[in-house]
Amino acid sequence: MSGDALPRMANVTVIKTFDIHCGLFAFTMVALTILYISARLYQQAFGFSMGLDANSPEFDRYWMTLFRIELPVLYGAGVLCWSYLFLTRDRSIETVTPETELRRYFYLTMWLVVYSFCIFWTGSFFADGDGVWHQTTLRDTPLTPSHIILFYATIPIYLFFGVGSFVYAMTRIPAFCRGVSLMHAIAVVGPFLILPNLGFNEWGHAYWLTEEIFSHPLHWGFVVLGWCALALAGVLMQIVERFRELIPLVFKQDAAGSPTDANPFRDAWEKCGPEAQRQRYKPTSVSGRRPISGKSK
């Protein structure tokens, strides 16, 4: 799946093709959608009928059983996946071909899309469900039909993909191995910290907040950690900056070989030399900020 194909492509003069396999990505998205909808259907079936009283035997059978299964399975799957990614790491990451590296950037992007998808189900769909569940019961124990899905199923699922994306990048993409992407770390660690923040939440509810006000400062820990989603912008910038360097290498046959691809600007740009290029490479921010570039290069 690497850049082995590069030499064979050398004589091609038409638009270059470049294999990116989307099968696993599509499968994951479909599987996750089915998983989330199934979880929601389970809530629909057994939320009211079995889940109103955490002290009842039926709660133990229908909800605590799920709780006991999902925790080891989901975290176990995560650990397995991260270990697999690490064990199958690229052991000579610096000699990776541009084509393979570019492909891996695309796969990293797909990891992040799946991660984002999971954040949607957690932060919006099931969190909203938690909001409505609180209207049907008194403050029960920390384990409710809503919390058992929201906190103990959907959070490990997004951790699977968040941490997975981080391990993938570090073990396969040179820039993400040479340096630690600050924003990638924030985007993964922030939502991860929502899990330990549950301790604060339940502590507050156990001791002094018996009524459910959603906007209560007790909940703001989740909010601040949710802000870390913004940090994916930094990862995006890291990806596009590297794309700028990789794409001309990967698609150079395209540029050289296609007579129809007249591009006077590019020709002029390439001819003008570094000094003139630097002059045109000017600050672009409305706030006067210079364009940001990777500092580890």
Partner: peptide
């Protein structure tokens, strides 16, 4: 469809109903 699916699942599992709303945790 969703309600039908939920009813089916509930039927298969032989659902009975809980009679408390969390007050026992108080």
């Amino acid at each position: 469809l969703i309600k039908f699916a939920a009813v089916c699942v509930a039927f298969i599992a032989g659902v009975s109903h809980a009679a408390a709303h969390g007050e026992r945790a108080q």
